[in-house]
Nucleic acid binder design. Structure first.
Length: 460
RNA sequence: GGCCCCAUUGUGUAUCGGUUAGCACGCCAGGUUUUCAACCUGGAAGGGCGGGUUCGACUCCCGCUGGGGCUACCA
């Protein structure tokens, strides 16, 4: 428990080695929720000590992803590489105190040592004047991690090598840099992926050698793909930008991702971000790994799409399709809002308003037969007489036609749908006609009638 | 190989020693319907295996199996 006097400080510390994955997004979200929940501070730190893989572009990508998710931070981004002087200081202290030493051994030497000593004990080097810098690890005893999610986890010290904390050139390695940074930045709670659990004893050892108080830890389980393997590109939309491109809403993604491994305790599944902030507690996160299920995200996204205010919805659709939000697009959005689960699904439903009907031979052949011509003629006639071209009057005009002709409604409306959109799927037919407008509707029905007359000789 | 984590329907979870094992997505069937969605009703589907402990285990302990992580002069 946090005492009231101890302000919570958490950090999200991605390594910029590629796009931000869903797992990373969840870690970011959990840290953000924890910070906002207790009015603490979220620090963004970029773990870029691996110069090979850390590029400006990757950092950009991660920040973009966080922006899109609407997760903000209070401090940073802090470049870990930029804290090299602090790391060097700390390193110097350990060297001076004898807690760390330079080891001339190369990888082959370590391998040889291990071959000789078997698995009973981690590698122990011999101090020299140059080489990588290793931390002395005790031979006896355990290092225990007190984890908010896992409980008490013990690691025998003998299973660890005297691990390398800095390269021969003095540049520090991840586990060392993290320990120093977390301590010096006053991080009180480290919420991160389970893959770091086995690293934690090393960090604890560094912290102890440096005389720092360790933070509290919460290791959240990793995410897996539907095949049970670690989540990766093969599993479809695995990165935040892919989710965005697939037409998901940030709020829906936040809701869905929060529920991967965490639940509010009751049966609620639709939780606003505000609600998430109110109810989230890292110690309630589950222990087992979860599988990212895009189908459920789709469903949830659909719920958010339908419940969005129309204004917001139209803006999102416009932005997603890189179009101006004009009144026409606004009207089109209005009639399609109930129909789409993702932003990507909206345009196919409303494009007929902006572009000529698409060519869909299958749809044409399936619908434009039998009494289709008759239905279209009657519809054209009825629509020509409509003055106020809104959905209501269109329905009044066209609605009675099925009964008039003794046809099922589908036999009348599907031909109209194909005539004006080219396909068998669209928003409600009366609304679609109204939004398309009188002139275009009539023109398209006429075109369809002509095509029908030209290609299919009337049977009877 | 060594160290560590995990294990409830297909998926996410609830249950925390006594329940007809609940909910959500998905799936199946039916309803509604101008298409597609949405929506409504119903249904199938679960405690990996083996030992304990206990009057009683999904729940506690041990083993096994399976999955995962770490084991770099990567992060």
């Amino acid at each position: 428990m946090n005492s009231a006097s101890e302000a919570l400080r958490v950090r999200f510390a991605p390594s910029p080695t590629g796009a931000l994955h869903i797992g990373g997004a969840r870690t970011a979200l959990y840290n953000w929720l924890a910070a906002r929940h207790s009015e603490g501070t979220l620090v963004l730190r970029i773990e870029d000590t691996d110069l090979e893989r850390s590029t400006e572009e990757n950092v950009e990508q991660i920040i973009e992803a966080l922006d899109w998710l609407e997760l903000d931070w209070d401090e940073g981004p802090v470049s870990q590489a930029g804290r090299a002087a602090n790391h060097a200081d700390a390193l110097q202290r350990l060297l001076e105190s004898g807690a760390a030493y330079r080891d001339p051994a190369k990888a082959e030497d370590v391998k040889a040592w291990k071959a000789e000593h078997g698995a009973d004990r981690g590698y122990r080097g011999a101090p020299g004047s140059e080489g990588a810098i290793r931390l002395k690890v005790p031979d006896e005893g355990d290092t225990v991690v007190h984890d908010m999610i896992r409980g008490e986890v013990r690691f025998p010290n003998s299973s660890y090598d005297d691990f390398v904390i800095a390269r021969g050139d003095g540049s520090v390695l991840y586990n060392f840099a993290v320990s120093v940074d977390d301590a010096e930045m006053g991080i009180t709670e480290v919420i991160r992926g389970d893959d770091h659990l086995s690293n934690t004893p090393k960090q604890l050892l560094v912290l102890e050698a440096l005389g720092h108080q360790p933070p509290r830890y919460a290791h959240v389980p990793l995410l897996h793909g539907p095949d049970g393997k670690k989540l990766s590109k093969r599993h479809g939309a695995a990165s935040v930008q892919e989710l965005r491109d697939a037409g998901y809403l940030p709020a829906a993604v936040r809701n869905y991702v929060a529920l991967l491994g965490w639940g509010p305790g009751d049966d609620e599944t639709l939780l606003s971000t505000e609600e998430l902030v109110k109810r989230f507690d890292p110690s309630d996160v589950g222990r087992s790994s979860a599988v990212f299920d895009e189908q459920k995200l789709r469903w949830m996204n659909g719920r958010y799409m339908r419940e969005m205010p129309l204004e917001e919805y139209a803006r999102a659709v416009a932005a997603h399709n890189e179009r101006e939000l004009d009144p026409l697009l606004h009207s089109a959005c209005e009639i399609a809002q109930e129909k789409a689960q993702t932003l990507n699904e909206v345009w196919p439903l409303i494009r007929f308003v902006f572009e000529p009907p698409i060519e869909d031979e299958k749809a044409w052949r399936k619908i434009m037969k039998g009494d289709a011509g008759k239905a279209l003629e009657a519809s054209r006639e009825a629509l020509e007489a409509v003055e106020e071209f809104d959905a209501g009057s269109v329905e009044t005009a066209v609605g009675p036609i099925p009964e008039m002709l003794g046809l099922k409604p589908g036999k009348v409306y599907q031909p109209i749908r194909v005539a004006i959109t080219g396909t068998t799927v669209s928003p409600g037919i009366f609304e679609s006609i109204a939004v398309l407008g009188r002139e275009k509707t009539l023109l398209r029905i006429t075109d369809a009638l002509e095509r029908l007359a030209a290609s299919v000789p009337e049977p009877d």
